[in-house]
Design a protein around this nucleic acid. Structure first.
Lengths: 341, 341
DNA sequence: CTGAAAGCGCTTACAG
DNA sequence: CTGAAAGCGCTTACAG
């Protein structure tokens, strides 16, 4: 229990070799002789040496950490994605830094500073709703190659990205309802301007068209992914003269809020109306009724994002880098959908 | 858009001063003359200079970051706590590193390494269930003063900590049920060995005793904070000959699982039994019925933890440091509790 | 108020 | 296979 932590110098002295040799033994043991290696390892044990990351980072010009940027830390939707990212990063000896867009901007900091001041080697952004000038500053930075969007993305921009199959998911959702016998299907959308909301809405309209189903304009209800918006959408549905028999919500939170509000007005799901969501959050299974949904593999999404970014960090020249990945979704059928009565 | 990022040397050259002066202007502007300051600021603008954190970290022997350790990244309970921690840290110019206990141990890393290798200046641990040998290694480290427990803690150890009022919360819960007229109250506990579970259970037993209520041993049902355990507990309750009219669950997840399972067996809450939880997670309000709960101020808990830790980091000698803080809880009354019929 | 210089703890061409 | 030495980009006593 020494108060002073030991340095590579201490190890070198204890092993009777140079600091260069200690460094090599630790980072590239193959090029060191067996005897020397043994001596160094013993000396490391003896001194309790731990490499000083700040020194290594300065010398190697690498932060050995990645910034993950969330729109909102308090949103549980992201937790499994973080788990996936963190797993991959720590397997590569990298640390995970977390910040939220709100906070960074609120504090007057600039996003790109995390890269420019060598705090992070790369950045995974889970927020497609960045201000245009922020996006521009990211684009025009020499390190722009080290920025990757996951889950969401920025329309019309060419950042590398990882996404879920939003189109396929919507396709599966609408066809599930169709195959149950529903012919009048409504959609509650995510927030205006959100890429996921648009992708799912566009896919919904296309799919309904492909099935030659009727679609009144008031059957597409603008929401915003939240429980509260789901409640509001339910009120809209209740007020309709000609009510669709099924509702596809752009998120599980919307669907749960929708069902909760219906229940307050004594409508029963799926008896009076089938409702389904998108995401398959943990609660979807426990709600009453349990929620039919499109599962996003958030763990895989996170792992994929991290591995694509690490590829770019470790070979900055990168010819054969992947630029986009799409993670499969799956239909999870539960109690909230049934044939129309 | 230069490819090479500029250093303090470049700024010094552009401003016609020494690097020492640039450094002072940026970190301690009061001791620099107005004219010099102006020149330096101009040069910074001109060169687009951003301080290199790795260099500063090495020189100042500070990582300017704090590690937050969760038992499980995928648990949404922690997200608001992280938000609170992050807010405080970023206001002090510190970054937030995230890892999970599971992962760290899985990878063969040692927790204390984060401090020993200068990756982090301090550590907030949200997991009281660390292995005994890990706790010991944390205790016996010279940097042990820079470790703080939040939410949970380790019984019998003297680490600084921030907690919610578990006792008061339990007191409020039992008294709420009592004042509704309940005289037979059950408790579903958290996992065996968890400090929060024990604190709440002990407080429950004490409170029921203080009110001179009957308490059969089978009315204390062992759970583990999860939805699934809540479902199991409901089965136990259903099987009781003499069923309590109210159930106080040690977490909201337990309570929601409990209600969900009851509902599958056609029991109505609060008509057949009153149920309440602890935490006040986001879903508590949206569930049907909405859940009476004890709210933990997770944002404040996070902010308090971060500020206590920063105090220790910034004055390591620290005579007047706070060693423990307790964050108030509040009773949130909703639909799931009512007088017994 | 400012500058010259040392040094934080590593890694890595270079030379042998 | 190994060592001497330079240097990553800062900050800070020290001297003036």
């Amino acid at each position: 229990m020494t108060l002073k932590t030991s340095t590579i110098q201490d190890v070198a002295r204890a092993a009777g070799v140079s600091t260069a040799t200690v460094s090599r033994t630790l980072s590239n043991p193959d090029i060191v002789s067996e005897l020397t290696k043994f001596r160094v390892y013993e000396a490391v044990k003896l001194t309790g040496y731990r490499i000083n990351r700040a020194a290594r980072n300065l010398r190697t010009q690498r932060a050995h950490s990645v910034l993950v940027l969330l729109p909102d830390l308090a949103n549980p939707f992201f937790s499994s994605i973080l788990e996936g990212i963190s797993r991959h990063l720590s397997s590569k000896g990298y640390s995970m830094l977390i910040a939220s867009t709100k906070q960074v901007h609120g504090s007057g900091e600039r996003l790109i500073d995390y890269l420019d001041d060598a705090r992070a080697d790369g950045m995974i952004i889970l927020d497609g709703g960045l201000d245009a000038d922020v996006v521009e500053s990211l684009e025009n930075n020499p390190k722009t190659k080290l920025i990757l969007f996951a889950c969401e993305w920025v329309e019309g921009k060419d950042f590398p990205s990882v996404r879920s199959e939003n189109g396929n998911g919507t396709h599966a959702a609408v066809n599930h309802l169709y195959s149950l016998g529903h012919r009048k299907i409504a959609h509650v959308t995510g927030p205006k301007g959100n890429v996921l909301a648009h992708a799912r809405k566009d896919a919904f309209i296309a799919e309904v068209g492909a099935l030659k189903l009727e679609l009144k304009s008031e059957w597409v209800i603008i929401g915003d992914f939240s429980l509260a918006a789901g409640c509001e959408a339910a009120k809209v549905w209740i007020a309709l003269d000609d009510r669709p028999t099924a509702v596809f919500c752009a998120s599980d939170q919307l669907a749960l809020g929708f069902i909760a509000e219906l229940s307050r007005h004594h409508f029963k799901v799926p008896y009076d109306v089938s409702v389904m969501g998108f995401d398959d959050i943990d609660f979807a299974e426990q709600f009453i009724p349990s929620l039919t949904s499109i599962r996003q593999d958030r763990l895989l999404l996170g792992e994929t994002a991290a591995s694509m970014l690490m590829e770019r960090i470790e070979s900055p020249d990168g010819t054969s880098q992947h630029h986009a990945a799409v993670v499969p979704v799956s239909l999870i059928i539960r109690e909230s959908t049934a044939p129309p009565r």
